[in-house]
Design a protein around this nucleic acid. Structure first.
Lengths: 227, 227
DNA sequence: CGGGGGCTTGAGGCCACTCAACGATAGTGG
DNA sequence: CCACTATCGTTGAGTGGCCTCAAGCCCCCG
């Protein structure tokens, strides 16, 4: 199932070396691991940001809530992704495990200490923040101006690009999660997926509805209007 | 009018010193000024990013377009704000002067050179990028989950906070700009403002409809659901 | 004074939401 | 092994909030 796919992904040489840290067993920066069960909170919005995280296996959602329960997911973090990098003292999102998820942790404090002396680490910090910013900027366009079908098409293409699972894409998240990411309801997401299925653009595999095959990528791309 | 208000704002000790540069007349970094007429483009999306800008007087909008013309404004830049800080080689937005606008410019190249050696400049670069990210994250919540009235209320509070013009708030941008910032149509924005007026929450001044008084800030705040 | 841009307001339509029913699946405990 | 339940997803019917289209006002500016 999805676990196998994600495990394959985790085999990529993705370590916190992305931050420019010398190696996996760095004496300065402690690299602990922790596993969160499906649905559990990793940290809450406005909590002090003590750690920075990297997904080893699994998936994480970062979201904000309005007081009446409306939820906006800002990003999904998949294997290899680093999250919780706030550069303020508190987290700006709540982070939860979408499925059983193993993460690596670094103390934010030690990371900042290293960044202070190491220009390359500092540069990578900026590069990653910029990447997050770019994603948020693109997502604003989606949330502000795209139709439901365009949003779902964009979502599938994004996930396909990021998971790079050959052939079958095994989504870890529910329709509700997708909806809250795209600013829609779960019914609208379901209808859009059904429509893409009818049109022969995507296919479903197995009896869980989370395994998707992109049958007609050009068609999907044309639905996702970019610039 | 708005010019007077903005001029007052520009008097604040806001210089590119915000980036940690030694002083206004820095020998390394050239600080030129330039004035753009209302409606003219400062740079285009995907153009190489040669300069970073700071608004001296006026206002700027940064936006993305879909191929069919739908527009999403990602941010307004007011007096003192720095924009065009892309940290890639190309701009990710198009920037236009909302009104006649004077900006200061620095060559991105020289800025990066300074950042390379000066840790404080590098840190400020990261801090500013993080601030932009935070704004984008909050805006995703607005675009994905808030009602039209909530969006307009949030907009007025944001502008009030940023312009800090005592008593009267003189918006430089049109209803269409506001709409494209909030992911609405100009008619919906107009109706929401009329509604806030009826409710006695805001007042209009003069015969232009861009001078607004916040009569009941608590009420407005309660309309803008936060976390 | 004529023209045009910006804003408001009304009428009607549509896309996404709400509410609801139903099937399928997985996990639980008798 | 089989109810029993909870969760997830799909689909339908109807509603509603925002969009579309249109008219009209006001002000500014040439």
């Amino acid at each position: 199932m999805f676990v196998r796919v994600n495990a394959a992904l985790a085999d990529r040489p993705h370590t916190l070396g992305d931050l420019g840290l010398p190696s996996e067993s760095n004496p300065i920066v402690s690299l602990n691991e922790f596993t969160y069960r499906k649905g559990t909170e990793i940290y809450g919005e406005k909590e002090p940001a003590e750690y920075v995280y990297q997904v080893k296996v699994g998936a994480v959602r970062s979201y904000k809530l309005l007081s009446d329960g409306r939820r906006q997911i800002g990003a999904f973090h998949l294997a290899g992704d680093i999250f919780g990098l706030e550069n303020g003292n508190t987290h700006r999102f709540t982070a939860e495990a979408v499925v059983d998820t193993t993460v690596r942790l670094i103390r934010r404090q030690s990371l900042e200490t290293v960044a202070e002396s190491d220009a390359m680490v500092a540069r990578n910090l900026l590069r990653m923040t910029t990447k997050n910013l770019q994603h948020a900027e693109d997502h604003m366009l989606l949330l502000g101006r795209k139709t439901s079908l365009e949003r779902v098409a964009a979502f599938l293409l994004e996930m396909d690009k990021r998971m790079r699972a050959t052939e079958v894409m095994a989504l870890p998240m529910s329709r509700r999660d997708i909806a809250d990411y795209l600013g829609l309801t779960l019914e609208t997401v379901s209808r859009a997926l059904s429509r893409l299925h009818e049109l022969g653009i995507i296919g479903f595999l197995g009896n869980t509805q989370r395994q998707i095959v992109l049958l007609d990528r050009p068609q999907l791309t044309s639905l996702d209007l970019q610039g």
